[in-house]
């Protein structure tokens, strides 16, 4: 009978303690760069904290998707190259690919999305993050990304073209 309880404990242990999620305290000199997000033309964001990059999709993207019902996350340890398909998001009968904005190894995925995929809609820029990766060549790659301001302009031009 106590197999049930022992397995329940195992299940709990399997949940990764989200160390990285709470580790938002960085040296003061970096605080400005930490809060900054960089964007791709495909509407992913990348937030860099030291060697670790956190990835999610923009508010513009979540609105375009509609209600997210499932997020297929990558395996921890997966090696991604900038532009690789990293995540598949399902919303309103559509499966949409999310590309990795940078190269590196996946170190953590947002387990909360497995049970609450709608976080992508309600908190796309914060709790709806998708995965973290250990960046392999951030200095090179961030040159191709947009800052908040130019991304906002880019979204405006996207709207005009539709």
């Amino acid at each position: 009978m106590n197999r049930f309880t022992s397995t329940a404990r195992l299940v709990c242990q399997r949940r990764p303690t989200s160390v990285a999620a709470t580790r938002s305290i960085t040296p003061r000199s970096f605080s400005r760069s930490f809060s900054t997000k960089l964007y791709t033309k495909d509407h992913e964001w990348l937030q860099i904290d030291g060697h670790i990059g956190t990835v999610g999709i923009s508010d513009y993207a979540q609105k375009a998707l509609g209600d997210v019902v499932f997020v297929d996350l990558p395996d921890v340890g997966k090696l991604l190259t900038q532009g690789d398909v990293a995540v598949s998001v399902e919303s309103v009968k559509a499966a949409s690919d999310v590309y990795s904005p940078a190269s590196g190894e996946v170190t953590e995925v947002n387990e909360a999305l497995r049970t609450q995929p709608d976080l992508v809609n309600s908190a796309s820029l914060s709790n709806g993050w998708m995965f973290k990766l250990k960046l392999s060549q951030p200095d090179e790659e961030i040159k191709s990304l947009k800052n908040e301001e130019s991304y906002a302009k880019f979204c405006e031009s996207e709207d005009e073209n539709h």
Partner: peptide, 21 residues
């Protein structure tokens, strides 16, 4: 509204989508 196609309230066609870039 789900983009199913109906004739007399009966579904005759269902749709799905795939988007990548």
């Amino acid at each position: 509204t789900r983009n199913d196609i109906l004739v007399n309230d009966r579904k005759i066609s269902g749709s799905a989508y795939r988007l990548s870039g």
